[in-house]
């Protein structure tokens, strides 16, 4: 464990908590893409099946359980408890356009053809693009609530910090995993536009609105 990975995990945790609190406190999931949240639940489910086979550390297991539980709690809030506030008219991204290529890619480029390894590879590819329905929704409505933009920033920053962690591990542990690195870089690039607007607008106290 190094500081970059720890900070990345903290950002990830903060993002999830911010999203849950936003929905809970405002009693509304307006502006949140349920489809992105379905994809994230799928990402955690397929990646953390190794919870039952591989023990790394208490930290590792606890975080996995938190990510799994919070992703399903988020789905419950969006699709059950606060369903009336779910903005399905703007959440129109076709997730099969992400799921099918991710399945195919994980069958083509993987470390090993074992079920756990294939599921992990799929989860890495899917995570890279899972935010697209949310970004699509923001681009459709042209705006995001400030709290939603904080959520997106923390979620994007997490993988960016992981990239620094991989560079660090490359030099200190001679460790490199091509699949995670390439997917992680693509994932971070998808947030780049958002990062720019977040830093130039939200951090200066303005609302997050896309340029007309």
């Amino acid at each position: 464990m190094n500081i970059f990975r720890l900070l990345g995990d903290i950002c990830h945790l903060v993002a999830i908590i911010v999203l849950l609190l936003k929905i809970w406190k405002t009693r509304s999931c307006a502006g949140i893409s349920g489809k992105s949240q379905i994809l994230f639940a799928l990402v955690y489910t397929t990646r953390y099946v190794d919870l039952f086979f591989t023990y790394v550390s208490l930290y590792n297991s606890v975080m996995k359980v938190i990510f799994l539980a919070s992703s399903y709690a988020t789905l419950y809030l969006i699709y059950v408890k606060f369903k009336a506030t779910y903005d399905f008219n703007h959440d129109t991204f076709r997730i099969e356009f992400l799921l099918i290529p991710c399945v195919i890619l994980s069958l083509l480029i993987t470390h090993d053809y074992s079920p756990v390894e294939l599921l992990w590879t799929f989860s890495i590819y899917l995570e890279a693009v899972a935010i697209l329905p949310q970004l699509f929704m923001v681009s459709k409505t042209g705006e995001a609530e400030t709290i939603t933009s904080h959520y997106l920033f923390a979620l994007g920053a997490y993988r960016a910090l992981y990239i620094v962690n991989w560079i660090y591990r490359y030099y200190t542990e001679s460790f490199i995993d091509g699949i995670a690195v390439v997917a992680g870089i693509i994932q971070t690039i998808l947030y780049a536009d958002f990062f720019y607007l977040y830093i130039t607008k939200v951090l200066k106290g303005k609302d997050f609105k896309l340029p007309a």
Partner: peptide, 10 residues
């Protein structure tokens, strides 16, 4: 260089 799945990462 070791190339494998980083099992310790989340």
């Amino acid at each position: 260089y070791q190339r494998y799945r980083p099992k310790d990462e989340l």
